[in-house]
Nucleic acid binder design. Structure first.
Lengths: 239, 239
DNA sequence: AGAGGTCAAGTGGTATGACCAGTTTCGTGG
DNA sequence: CCACGAAACTGGTCATACCACTTGACCTCT
């Protein structure tokens, strides 16, 4: 006996998902006008407050533009939406999107070393305790999935040490996108999270306050799995 | 006659803002339990659907955790929220937050060159027309505020050319945070958007497909205003 | 005393229907 | 022909009732 990931999606969730799916698939194009709340409610067999809640959430995510008096129109999510849309794009229906994975990996490889650098500059030795603890948890984790979560905790400490609200929020968004896909990517990412020595080396550089070394060691830590992921994606694309 | 900055904020907007303000100010700490929807509605003098809509939007932004049967609890926005929170943090009540500005500028300086690099690699000459058009609009703009908007359009083209959904969504989020503050930052940013030659040089490198040169010229374009902003912020901090 | 079940109270989830407030449309009267 | 305004949309708000879930107190049986 193991899991109950539940799934009790609420009615507004369902409506939100349904509309978003049509937008991502192109059935609903940018500029297109949505049916009125009343018509949508009737068509979907739900109450008006339910579709309203979904539409308001879509408006907050910059997916639609809703103005009183006029009809609600679809926006181009690629032009306006924020990182919070990423999880929905990464796994549209259980299957991971190759282009999105590549994009995440390359963004990660570019941003994470900067975070390590900033953490070394601005916090350095203050992070020693937290880093030790999180690395201990990492080596203690017995299966690759858990190790991935502990690795995320490791980066969480560095992000905190970087003292940059923007990188913090970016990290939150990327992590939220990544978490649902952990299982699907675990095979390849094992090549990274198993390198506990690389984590220790990076932590040492950060704790010592050596920004340049921290950056280099972060690159060293992230590169192998990133490269492996890229080649795997290339193979997938050809088939 | 010029303005109608509107302000017709809806009731749920008002509730959302109110709760968020208390969270950012610390009146509402992480882990704390919110009053029930009914009590909140009565206390704020609005209907329950209104507070409900606000709470659902806060839940989507990872600001609160709402579970049926239990009371809604406040999350640590620094740990969970995404980039979409940035605009609210940047200008809490009309005044820009210094730390947030610095964070945005340093993130920009780190990410934008990578975008230029990717655009050069992946799109190169295909961007020639769009870049010419947007630079023409930039030099034609007569006041600094308009020039800032045209500069954002310039980067929009590069981001599109970078063909990376993650950088695209990041850019959208940063732009959304930046836009409300354009007026406040226009004096310093003029040092950047007035350098039309630097834009042209960057565009030429990108169009030529020279990734390294594109990166360097992006750094060259962004650095002066960034440095100026940093020193200005330091002075502000001391007073 | 402890383990198990039951039930009441409180929470969020959903639905209905009414009315308010803007926009657009189109017919009517100038 | 034009200007005006009523009507018919649209989303915005509210009140109310009921459903679904969680918790915890209480009660029962062992």
């Amino acid at each position: 006996m193991n899991l109950q990931p539940i799934s009790r999606r609420s009615v507004p969730d369902e409506v939100f998902e349904r509309l978003l799916t049509e937008m991502v698939e192109g059935t609903l194009g940018p500029g297109e006008a949505l049916p009125s709340e009343r018509k949508l409610a009737e068509a979907l067999g739900v109450s008006r407050p339910a579709v309203r809640e979904a539409l308001q959430r879509m408006a907050q995510a910059k997916l639609v533009d809703v103005r009183q008096g006029e009809s609600t129109t679809v926006l181009d999510y690629r032009k306006h939406a924020g990182l919070d849309l990423l999880p929905r794009l990464l796994m549209p229906g259980g299957q991971v999107d190759i282009g999105v994975v590549r994009s995440i990996m390359e963004a990660r490889l570019h941003i994470a070393p900067k975070i390590a650098e900033l953490a070394a500059e601005r916090s350095g030795p203050r992070l020693a305790g937290d880093l030790d603890a999180v690395i201990a948890a990492l080596v203690a984790a017995d299966d690759p999935v858990r190790r991935q979560h502990r690795a995320l905790d490791f980066w969480d400490v560095l992000v905190e040490g970087a003292s940059s609200i923007v990188f913090r929020l970016m990290f939150n968004g990327l992590r939220a996108a990544y978490l649902p896909a952990v299982d699907a990517l675990t095979t390849i990412m094992a090549a990274e999270v198993d390198r506990t020595d690389a984590y220790r080396a990076l932590a040492a550089a950060v704790t010592a306050g050596d920004a340049r070394q921290a950056r280099d060691r972060a690159v060293d830590l992230l590169t192998p799995a990133t490269e492996r992921m890229f080649t795997a994606l290339r193979h997938l694309e050809q088939s």
